[in-house]
């Protein structure tokens, strides 16, 4: 075991892991974090805490992670390279670990252009690959990125993101390999709607044996409405929502759309379960945390195993 992370334990024991996410509030309302995370209690193995998601300012992922930890739940601390240089990031990582946070996800971060501070500088002192390398170095070698020794290393379970649907497609498996080489212990993927394409990607992953080198959590999202499906298909870069999904959402009356979205999500999970190399699911129910329980229930992912 590389860490004390509950997520690592679940995965190491061979169970299908389940994670979900929780966006921190845009203001000083710790109770919102509590409410949202409570929906997920006993439902998931770790809760992703986003870091200024879509480049909108929110409560820091570190603070929100701590609040979740205080609830006795397991936060998955997200760190992006957009807002901080390597000094700040390392400081936060040490801080987080010191407050009991042992699982993290390393990301490049959405560009500020899409957020509420498009005027802000994009830091990108290092990129997500280098962040992985840095955290791994801190954990395994006990050194800072600059080479100095750490007094007490953060034993983090290190995650990274992968988007099997972005271009160039042929690079996507190689990029995963590179992230693993850089230090990723587990992977959370972009939301999967196009299962065929995901399977194609996984074929490549298996061909290189990468599924044996790290845990791959397949990302899924329930569409709340036809509008949401359309938005994701058209507006979110790197998201692949096939026409059939949109059509299916469109084929039911408005009041039934949420239900249909959940159905699609559950069917997707069922299909993904059969894909060799899928180690669990990352259920992204953005601002719809309360539905995660139903999804897990109906997808046969409950109760969560004890480790």
């Amino acid at each position: 075991m590389k860490s004390e992370s509950r997520l690592e334990k679940i995965l190491a024991a061979g169970h299908l892991a389940v994670t979900s996410e929780c966006g921190p509030p845009r203001g000083c309302k710790p109770e919102d974090v509590v409410t949202k995370s409570k929906y997920l209690e006993g439902i998931v193995d770790a809760i992703n805490v986003t870091d200024n998601q879509t480049a909108m300012v929110r409560m820091s992922s570190l603070a929100a992670s701590v609040i979740i930890k205080q609830q006795g739940l397991n936060p998955l601390f997200q760190v992006t390279c957009r807002d901080r240089n390597r000094l700040a990031m390392q400081a936060d990582i040490i801080g987080a670990y010191s407050l009991g946070i042992d699982t993290m996800l390393c990301l490049s971060g959405d560009h500020t252009k899409f957020g509420d501070h498009p005027q802000a500088a994009n830091v990108h002192d290092i990129d997500s690959m280098q962040l992985l390398q840095m955290v791994k170095g801190m954990r395994d070698d006990g050194v800072f990125q600059g080479g100095a020794e750490l007094k007490g290393a953060p034993k983090m379970f290190i995650g990274a993101a992968a988007n099997p649907f972005a271009d160039p497609f042929e690079l996507r498996v190689m990029r995963l390999a590179k992230k693993i080489a850089a230090g990723a212990d587990f992977i959370q993927t972009q939301c999967i709607f196009n299962v065929d394409k995901f399977e194609q990607w996984m074929e490549g992953v298996r061909a290189k044996g990468l599924h044996k080198k790290c845990y791959i959590l397949a990302g899924v999202t329930p569409c709340k409405s036809l509008g949401a499906a359309r938005y994701m298909s058209k507006r979110v870069p790197g998201m692949d929502v096939p026409k059939e999904v949109v059509d299916r959402m469109a084929s039911v009356p408005k009041e039934k759309q949420a239900e249909e979205g959940v159905n699609i999500c559950i069917e997707t999970i069922e299909r993904l379960k059969k894909v060799e190399g899928v180690a669990g699911f990352h259920i992204m129910a953005i601002e719809w945390e309360e539905i995660v329980e139903e999804i897990c229930e109906r997808a046969g992912l409950l109760p969560r195993p004890q480790v």
Binding site: S128, M129, A162, A166
Partner: peptide, 20 residues
């Protein structure tokens, strides 16, 4: 690269274009 990525494309690369 809008994000100065030195190790490969982010997930926003679509048909050869940048997400921004």
């Amino acid at each position: 690269c809008a994000k100065q990525l030195m190790n490969g494309p982010c997930g926003g690369s679509v048909t050869g274009k940048c997400e921004i």
